[in-house]
Design a binder for these strands. Structure first.
Lengths: 116, 116
DNA sequence: CTGCATCCTTTGAGATACTG
DNA sequence: CAGTATCTCAAAGGATGCAG
């Protein structure tokens, strides 16, 4: 994972974009920002997201160091996901995205009204 | 462009993710947040980005309503890109991404040091 | 100068089936 | 319960050539 892209690790925007790229990363991080979750809980929170995809995205976030994966060696298995320190710091970005997203949605709606 | 995805226009995170999805959107928005730019200027700022790709990304951002495209009917042609109002509001997100990105880069570097 | 149309290649999401 | 492995398909980036 280390040392692969020219601007990765140089430009904060390129770096962030690369990490966020996954289709569900933001939503996953948002859910984990509230509290630690088990795999199954995450899955239930994101019904549209298939198991295999969720696994991939979590692995990706783990490799990037945003997410902790804690395996409990027991039967039935139990795996908990939580944010690392640097992952928690991402919450500020999530907050601003949330705020902007709301504004944007309002903006779209009012535009639709005046159109029709 | 209107009315296509279930959670688009509902969940601020899903909505934002969808818009940001393009590989270069964040960097493009960042560059435009400073000032209005011509097509060629943008291209020079992003040398790795191919012309066709840049066009597509700009079109996408235009459709989503974040970017204004102003065509000057003259020879040689001149096209200026700038942020719309809602596009300008995205700057808050860009700022937080920038801040987090810097932290993340530092974080990675110190981790590399302690590894080797 | 700017940018559209077309084709190619790669990426990654999604679906299905199977395991400790 | 929480994966892994594999396949398919669509999307997006990228390269090239053409046009107003």
């Amino acid at each position: 994972m280390e040392e692969e892209y020219n601007l990765f690790g140089k430009c904060p925007f390129v770096t962030a974009q690369k990490i966020i790229a996954g289709k569900w990363t933001i939503v996953i991080l948002h859910n984990l920002s509230t509290k630690t979750l088990r795999f199954g809980e995450l899955q239930r929170l994101l019904p549209e997201l298939k198991q295999a995809t969720l696994t991939k995205q979590l692995r990706s976030l783990e490799e990037y160091g945003l997410v902790n994966r804690k395996v409990f060696p027991q039967v039935p298995p139990k795996v908990e996901y939580s944010l690392t320190d640097i992952g928690k710091e991402f919450k500020l970005v999530l907050d601003s995205i949330s705020i902007w997203g709301e504004k944007y949605i309002d903006h779209i709606k009012s535009a639709e009204v005046s159109e029709s």
